[in-house]
Amino acid sequence: MKRIVIVNQKSDDLCHAVKEQLPKAIEYPDFNWQPQSQDIICWIPNDEIRVDLAVSDLAAKLDQSAVQPAKIIMKSIAGTADDATDDQLTRWYGETGQNMVMDHLYAIKMIDELEFPYTIVRSLPLTNDDVQRCLMTEGQPYRGNYSNIQQVATIIAQATDPEKFKNQSIGI
């Protein structure tokens, strides 16, 4: 079985919910760990960090390593796949919403250019409230204001299957 490494840079309950579904997953707070062949890397960045800068740590880690990951999964924000209006971005993320989307787009592009299998999981701001959402393809507009943490965790856990959602950006 492939090792699942969660790089958790968030302060909410998402990583805990993912680990409930993937109890053997290993958690790190940053990219300061030693990759093993065929790792499944699950990156959960804090929405407010400069993910455009943080992704360079991931790229450097993989460039310096002689091993290749089986897959990279990144939790991203809504708005990176032509799925939100400027007004929605401001409502969800405040005045910096458009900048956050640009940062996430850069990080997604970097992950794509690493040429390893990947899945991008896009979501609205997270809540523990019972919000039922469905999977969305790129370009499908978001409605509502929140995504449920448990639902997002389930999609992230499913994405650890190397063949599930391969090289896709999916929304929830």
Rank of each mutant, 00 (worst) to 15 (best):
N167F: 07
D86H: 01
I40F: 09
I111T: 00
Y106G: 02
T119W: 04
I41E: 02
T85G: 00
Q132R: 13
R143T: 14
P162I: 11
T90Y: 04
E115C: 11
A70C: 07
Y118V: 01
N32M: 09
Q36D: 06
Q38M: 12
T96R: 14
L105F: 08
D112V: 01
G144Q: 06
I149Y: 11
Q98R: 10
M136F: 15
D161W: 11
Q168W: 10
Y28R: 10
I111C: 00
P23C: 02
L126Q: 11
Q38E: 14
S76E: 00
C15M: 02
I6Y: 09
Y142D: 05
D103T: 10
I44G: 03
E20R: 13
D112P: 00
I6E: 13
A107N: 02
S37M: 06
Q21R: 15
A54C: 05
A159R: 07
D57E: 15
I172Q: 11
D30Q: 07
L14M: 10
P35D: 10
L53I: 06
F31D: 09
G144E: 07
H16A: 12
L58F: 15
N46L: 08
T160L: 05
G139R: 03
P162H: 11
I26M: 06
L89H: 03
I170V: 15
A59C: 12
M100C: 01
G79P: 01
A66H: 12
S11K: 15
L135H: 08
A159W: 05
S169G: 06
Q36G: 04
T90D: 05
T154G: 10
T90S: 05
D63W: 13
A60H: 15
P141S: 06
I41Y: 05
Q38H: 15
Y142L: 10
R3I: 08
N99Q: 08
A107T: 02
T85W: 00
K2P: 09
T137I: 04
T154I: 06
L89S: 02
M74G: 00
A81F: 00
S37F: 10
S65Q: 05
C134Y: 10
I155P: 03
E113W: 04
K10V: 08
L114S: 06
Y142F: 09
D47R: 14
L89C: 01
K71I: 10
A54W: 12
A84R: 09
V131K: 08
S147K: 08
S65G: 03
Y146R: 08
